[in-house]
């Protein structure tokens, strides 16, 4: 299928090179991203933090191939998305990325298992096979007992678990979660985080999560700080980050390439 990566298993799952994204709004150009380079490797676990309107969601959409950069190069699953048609990109997303949204985005009239099975429709799998895999995915997130429930019959935490199962069902390389705990209370949010971390640890799925919650951000292996459409330099990952000063400036300003290369882990430094 078109979604297979072409540059071998060593290629990073996601790679952004100096990407910008600007919007035309009533004749005014809004620059949401102003040149961001970033690599997400296999098994990565990164938190994207930054003030509201800084461009976090825009960045996530680009990384997930939901949107195309205005300038710069973006590789998803090793493929430069500029070379892909919309439909090809859809296939790449389907094979490579799992999305988790703040508002869950479950289909209201559809059972949990069919919600989870939905991405597999677009892989051309048979219904029985889709449901089998969906059941498995739901069991992995601890929702095996709620297969036929509809979203309205589930709690917020349960809905987000179903949404995570849906993101997982296609065995993606990366889970992109934009404020996945934003609609949940603290405890449920932590449960969802624990689930994401477990998936990251045990199944090697890279996890990138946007959050405003510093406790949530602190658990990631690294933090990507966004401000005014740029990445801010962050200190090298520390085992015990200081939650009281998340926006602490690092005096020595490493290049972004350096930054990403350092935190992307294995095979991240290509320069």
């Amino acid at each position: 299928m078109t979604g297979q990566h072409v540059t071998g298993p060593a290629a990073p799952a996601l790679e952004a090179i100096d990407v910008t994204r600007s919007y035309q709004l009533d004749g005014v150009t809004v620059e949401a991203l102003r040149g961001v380079s970033l690599t997400v490797g296999r098994g990565d676990y990164a938190a994207v933090v930054g003030p509201s309107g800084s461009g976090k969601s825009t960045l996530m959409h680009l990384l997930g191939g939901l949107d195309r950069p205005t300038t710069g190069v973006l590789r998803v699953g090793g493929r430069d998305i500029a070379a892909l048609t919309g439909d090809e990109l859809a296939a790449v997303r389907n094979a490579t990325i799992g999305f988790v949204f703040q508002a869950f985005q479950l289909l209201g009239r559809t059972s949990a298992v069919d919600n989870v099975a939905m991405p597999l429709v677009y892989r051309g799998l048979r219904r029985a096979e889709r449901r089998r895999r969906a059941r498995e995915a739901l069991e992995r997130v601890g929702m095996g007992h709620r297969l036929d429930h509809r979203p309205a019959q589930l709690s917020g935490g349960e809905q987000q678990r179903v949404a995570i199962a849906r993101a997982l069902v296609g065995d993606p390389q990366v889970l992109l979660a934009d404020e996945p705990t934003g609609n949940l209370d603290t405890r449920t949010g932590m449960e969802v985080m624990a689930l994401l971390e477990e998936l990251n640890r045990n199944q090697g799925v890279a996890v990138v999560i946007v959050t405003h919650d510093l406790d949530v951000a602190a658990r990631a292996h690294r933090q990507i700080r966004v401000r005014d459409g740029r990445l801010e330099p962050t200190p090298a990952p520390t085992p015990t980050p200081d939650p009281t000063s998340p926006a602490k400036q690092h005096p020595g300003r490493p290049t972004e390439r350096h930054l990403t290369g350092e935190v992307a882990g294995r095979g991240g430094t290509s320069s």
Partner: peptide, 9 residues
């Protein structure tokens, strides 16, 4: 959502 998870046009 459908397009995000892989639906083509």
């Amino acid at each position: 959502l459908r397009k995000a998870v892989g639906a083509r046009t």
